[in-house]
Structure formats: C-alpha cells, structure tokens
Nucleic acid binder design. Structure first.
Lengths: 253, 253
DNA sequence: CCTTTTGATATGTATATACATAATCGTCAC
DNA sequence: GTGACGATTATGTATATACATATCAAAAGG
C-alpha cells in the first residue's frame, strides 16, 4: 500500500483531449468496451476490487463509476455475483429533420414564406445560452412566418452564429428561408431537438392568428458542425395544425 | 448539531412506500421543491455545509445528491457561488419514452403508479379507429396515473386489443402498469408515435392537478405485433413537467 | 483610478475506513 | 439426500479527511 497518490500521471490525454477525472475515465473505458461489443451482454465485468488494482485507486472511485453505469442501464449489478453487461433495450429513434415547406406541401396546401425581422448583433447572454456558445461574437437573429395556404402555419425564431457561418451576414433571407439556406451551405454533424407544449405568448399568438394562451407545440433545434454551434431555431406551431409522427421499429442489440 | 427530527422524521414511508437511502432522500426532497415551484428557477439552494447540518450527515452524502441533481439538469452548480435551480426541463430521450418509471426515477423522485379505471368491452367504432382495427372484437380500456413523488406526472389512457393479447383480460393492473406488463409479454414489431400539444380537458386536468385549458404534451403510441394491432396508449403530460429531447450525436459514455 | 495580488469560500475529486445487506457456498447434523 | 446455518463475498451506503480548483471580494500596489 505505498499509495504514492496521483496515479493520474496522465489522464486520457491523447484520446478526446478532455481532461477526465479518474472515475470518469474508468466509466468511459468500460462503456467503450460495452458499446464496441468487446464485452458482450451477459459478460461479467471485473469486480470492484480488481478495478481498484488495475487503476490503482480506491474502491469508492470504482464504485462511483460502476454505480453510474448501472444507473445508465449499461450494466446490472448483483450482490455477491458481480456486475454484468445488460442487453441494450433501447430502440433507435430517428426523427427526421424536417423542412416546413415539405410538411406543408405534403398536406396539399400552397406554401408561402415571409421574413418578419432580421437583426445583426453582438451575442447577448441569452443568445449564447441558446446557442451553447461560450464566447461572445456576432449573431444574426431572424423571425419568420411559414404559411399553409392563407393561414400561418409556423412561427420561426432563429439565431445564427456568424462566427461559424459568416456568409449569412450578407443574406437578407427575403426569398429563402434560413433553414434550407443553411442546409445547402453548412454540413451539420449533430443536432438536438427539444419538443414541448407551451401556452402561446402574446407576440407569437398574434403572428399565428390564435388566442394568447392557446396550446402550442414548440420544437427547438440546435445544430452543430464539427463541434461549433451553428444555429438555434424555435418553431412554434398552433396546436391544431401540427402532429409529429415518428415510426420506430425495434433494433434491439 | 443534533437536529435529528425535522425533515427526517419519516423516511418517505406513507408516500412512495420505498425505503430511500439518505442521499436519495435529500435528492428527492430537493427535486420535489424545485418541481413544485417552491424553489423557483434562479433560486440558490442551501450550500452543502448547510444541508450537511440540516440532515446531520457528511458533506460527501450531500455532495452525492447534489451532483446527481446537477447531472439530471435540475440544478446548476457554480464554484464559490453555490447551486442554483435551473429552468425545469425534465428530459426524456425519445428512446426512453416507453417507460415512465425510468423517466421519473431519472429525476430522482420516487415513482408511484395508480390504476384509476378498467373496463372490458366490445370495441366501439372509436376504439377501432384508435387501434386501427378493422373487425369488431373485445378490448380492455384502462385509465392510469403516474406520479413523481407526490405530484401527478402523467395521465395514461390505454386500449388493449384482447384478440391479440387475451391474457390481459385476467390482469387487474393494480400493481403493474400496462406498459411494462405488455413489454414483458408481447414482442412488438412496429410502433408509431404521435406527439402534439393540446389544451387539458377538464377530466384530465383534474387528474393531473392543473388548470383546465393548460397546455399539455400528448404522446400517443400505437403498437403492432406481426401486423396485428396490440395497443393504443395516450400519455398526457403537464407542460411544465416535460420536454422531449432527441439528440443525434456519436454516442459517448 | 485601475490593475494585481491575496485570501476566503464552495464545490470537485479522491482516499481510507466502517458497517450493512444480499446472495451464495460449504459444512454438518439429521 | 437435504435442510439449517454460519462463513464468505461483492456490492451499498456513509463517514472523516485531505487537497485541488475555480471564483469572487477585498486589500495592496502602481
């Protein structure tokens, strides 16, 4: 039990570049092996005391990592027997990134787009929160309406990170909606959707021609390109207009 | 010091019935206060050393609870400043929406299930439309509530096609929610989700303890097994409780 | 007045230790 | 054989302690 401490001489440097704490490193080492299939479902992963020896750390540290893996559902822990890789029982859910024009036309209605407001500004704290941007920089804020026939169909509030897409500063977005414009220019590597129900606030209710407080479906999307935040957009649909449909088939694992 | 008593008098007995460890209890106490609105977004929750005193335990125990709350996204921790309530955004990845228990427990709250109504009947035209069933036959209709802590979290209305799952007729569904029960019995080959916003109708608003007309997120799912309709379920979530999150990134630990 | 330094503070991580609890194994008596 | 029972084992939870680190505020210096 010399203990020297540190142990951590290097902490997973070469790989991700991130600085990981020890229990995080143990956690990611193990989940890597599980997700890669090296440790198949049913496989017994090393006991806590074995990992303690392997990483030269205390059992508490190993325990923290394994507890989190168990909570995440990757492993199952059984007293006296050990910890076992669980069969992944999640279905891959794929929600398509949708273009509103296509949605509207699928309904058989004529599509029309209208740009309401556009402003270029230095990012506020709110802007940075929405974009998950950590440094200040210029952004482009847009507000648009999408029509199905004569009726407003969706309201769009968008932020574009001009550091990532400088060309956007030259574009008025009178003719082309920002969504299709961006798709044609910026390859996105990751996106996150948030879907929720809200009561329409006054400004948006007026734009959508519905009553203030009426239920609306809000879809927010954040898009990244190679680790850089590109855009954040919030679509608000009047409730009666919109249903998201997603079809899943089980993939099992 | 001393302090015993207060909060700790009962350990969540009457409520969830579960026996909670101390850090779980701290965690659920706090998240309850956040979700109930007692501690609004931005509010600074007590420092670790204050909670240490309140619960008469070590800082590690408090730290474990707060770390989990931070990971679940309910609070934000800032060194030197303290821990602050974040805007509630309970996240359920789309891949997990089928099991409400897991969602609730991910928030650190005790889960409870309650069956409200159950009736067996010959399928009405409405029933057949919901199930996409073309011939008449017996169905089981269920109405249930799912609780997170003491508050209702989701309302469930379900139809089960008894022609596809005859064993369901024997089950009271007092203990087991129909979702988990079906998953264990019927292999499903396809599912379709519909997600939309609605205004809460009187009956459901009363069950969820919200105001009639308040915006709610509704998720409907239809499930097939080998071409046969199995079940249709409609979950209604109070808006402030629920955000669906779908993320597309290379998965990591 | 503005910048820099210093100190206080709250969280972040890790250790060694202790005891509790659940499950399994081996032994011994019947 | 087999049933009872204690020993063993791995995990579950909690404690006291230690040091690292980020950050803010006040003191010190130009």
């Amino acid at each position: 039990m010399s203990m020297i401490a540190t142990t951590s001489a290097d902490s997973g440097s070469a790989d991700g570049g991130e600085v990981l704490s020890l229990h995080q490193r143990i956690l990611s080492d193990i989940s890597e092996r599980i997700l890669s299939g090296a440790w198949a479902p049913g496989h017994r992963i090393p006991f806590e005391h074995e990992l303690t020896a392997e990483y030269n750390c205390s059992r508490m540290t190993v325990n923290k990592a394994l507890s989190q893996l168990a909570k995440a559902g990757l492993i199952e822990r059984r007293r006296r027997s050990g910890s076992f890789v669980r069969r992944p029982q999640s279905q891959a859910a794929v929600l398509e990134i949708h273009d509103i024009r296509i949605e509207v036309e699928a309904l058989g209605l004529p599509y029309r787009y209208e740009r309401m407001a556009r402003s270029r500004r230095r990012s506020s704290a709110d802007d940075r929160a929405l974009l998950e941007l950590d440094v200040a920089g210029p952004v482009l804020a847009l507000e648009c309406l999408h029509f199905a026939g004569k009726r407003p169909f969706a309201h769009e509030q968008r932020l574009i990170n001009l550091a990532a897409v400088p060309e956007a500063a030259e574009e008025a977005f009178f003719e082309t909606a920002p969504g299709p414009w961006l798709i044609g220019r910026v390859p996105w590597s990751a996106a996150e959707h948030r879907i929720r129900a809200v009561a329409a606030e006054k400004h948006i209710a007026a734009a959508l021609d519905i009553e203030t407080g009426a239920p609306c479906l809000v879809i927010e999307r954040r898009t990244w390109s190679a680790e850089h935040p590109v855009t954040h957009v919030r679509f608000t649909y009047a409730a009666e207009n919109h249903t998201l449909v997603a079809r899943f088939t089980p993939s099992q694992g």
